[in-house]
Design a protein around this nucleic acid. Structure first.
Lengths: 217, 217
DNA sequence: CCCCGATCGTGACAAATGTCACTGCCCTAG
DNA sequence: CTAGGGCAGTGACATTTGTCACGATCGGGG
């Protein structure tokens, strides 16, 4: 409602037009709180919000915000997928915010041309600054995550191994996985075994857990 | 900051003194956003915040707030434990807010004399009203969760079975669990097996997962 | 007193899971 | 063409995990 985007007289910057922001997070409470927090900033105006990935895309197309703040964990389409679709359709910039900052996810996010990546452990004061940076065309990657992602090696797993691991996260017998993948049970065991070796795990569940934490699945 | 607790001239209620609120959540960003959101309410004043359970207890003792808003998932001491300690030391009321609203957890929360229980999917507008209700001595339990908790049966598992299941959530071999519990491996398998039967699961991981979702472990 | 049920605990057996050595296929380099 | 390396797929074997039938211990009646 506060359409007075030119309100920011207090800001010393040159062309201090208000930043038009879209917020997407599936938890209603968090979303509302973020809206409140960021609307307090004189140079930021929240123009749209959504509670899932596809709604975020629609809203972005409808409102053409300057910056989109997307939660990574969302139903329908996760933050990265939503970011890719939004950036394909609208000239805007995306900041991903996430609870579990897994290295591989950062990699995928950057591949999708995301401009900012921050964990939910970021101090609240900093978020507004990140949004300003990104709006100005700069990038911001949380240093902690960046360091982890750089030291973390690239995924050593083959496609099939990843398929098998993906299904191992839920409680599924090897048989069921095999059916799902149209493979012989032995083959699946083999993939899981080699994945376990590569990941130095002693059960497929541990391997799947580890791969997930790295953001590989 | 804004110590003008008596500001609420707009509020029609009789003795509209400001509600003094403590907020605890381990995610800095969320905590900051909640503070911003609730400080917008004219009759609410955030007087303390903490990022873990024990800090929350200390802050509560130091500031004697009217209401404490505690996240369930926190390091050091979870929301329920913190609630119990706070209520033992300070005359105040507690609202638990959580991401995964598991039935058994509600049960434990109520046993700890918590006054409010809301999921993070609650609309932001509603939270302030819950806090007012609780401050006025009433209770508020999210209807959805309450219904689930009422239909959900009580935990059918024995103590030892719960012990074994607890350890089954992490990736541990039966051997290791047995050592940890000072038992023979066979015994552990037995407990797990009976738990699996009771929970209609086909692996201990599935059983552990199910027990966790019910809030039994 | 003894029996009874409930709970904890153990070991033998069957089924699943993980390991290994092997074959076939495709692609690339020589 | 063909040799070789990497990946997909298979079946035989050892280990782990889950099932079962059976003791031991402990209280509370009859």
């Amino acid at each position: 409602m506060s359409s007075g985007g030119a309100a920011g007289g207090a800001v010393g910057e040159g062309a201090a037009r208000g930043i038009r922001l879209l917020i997407a997070d599936d938890e209603h409470l968090i979303r509302g709180a973020l809206v409140a927090l960021l609307n307090l900033e004189p140079d930021i105006e929240v123009v749209a919000s959504a509670d899932n990935g596809v709604a975020a895309v629609e809203q972005a197309v409808a409102t053409s915000p300057d910056v989109c703040l997307l939660d990574l964990e969302m139903p329908e389409a996760d933050g990265i997928e939503a970011a890719a679709r939004i950036l394909a359709a609208v000239p805007t910039r995306v900041v991903i915010v996430t609870r579990h900052a897994r290295p591989g996810v950062l990699r995928r996010a950057l591949a999708s041309k995301v401009s900012g990546f921050v964990p939910k452990s970021t101090p609240a004061e900093e978020l507004a600054q990140v949004i300003r940076d990104v709006a100005a065309g700069r990038r911001y990657i949380d240093p902690e995550i960046a360091a982890t992602a750089l030291t973390a090696e690239r995924c050593p797993l083959t496609d099939r191994e990843l398929d098998a691991l993906r299904h191992s996260r839920s409680t599924m017998s090897v048989q069921q996985i095999a059916e799902r993948l149209h493979l012989a049970p032995g083959t699946v065991r083999n993939y899981l075994s080699s994945a376990m070796t590569k990941l130095d795990a002693s059960s497929r569940h541990e391997a799947a857990e580890r791969a997930w934490q790295q953001g590989w699945i």
